[in-house]
Amino acid sequence: MHELSVVIEVVKTVEEFAKKNGVTRIDRLVLQIGELSSMIPAYIEECFPCAVDGTTLESTRLEIEILPGNARCRACGKTFNLLENKGACPACGVKDAEILSGREFMIKEIVAC
């Protein structure tokens, strides 16, 4: 349910964009989702057909790019991937890092035809 309400929001935004730019057919929609976002890509894919039903995106293909969840260790300054390292700095072991990226949920682009 969480994903569906958000995907409906995405579809609205894309339709607005398409209208403003005179696009009538959208071949592909590319989203970017951070690893640390609460959005689960598989769920998004699952509810996409339902969200686009009856809209101009009905035959649009969905593509999802994953953005890494990177953080900087507050103790030693090393930058590392949070999930791969289970939150602990691989250099010094400290579990106190500032998140640099990975919370995004972006509409990257559309491929119009």
Partner: peptide
Amino acid sequence: TFKVMEIKKSVYEG
């Protein structure tokens, strides 16, 4: 012809 159109917009922005 296919045309890539950048949107670069956070979903939460609206």
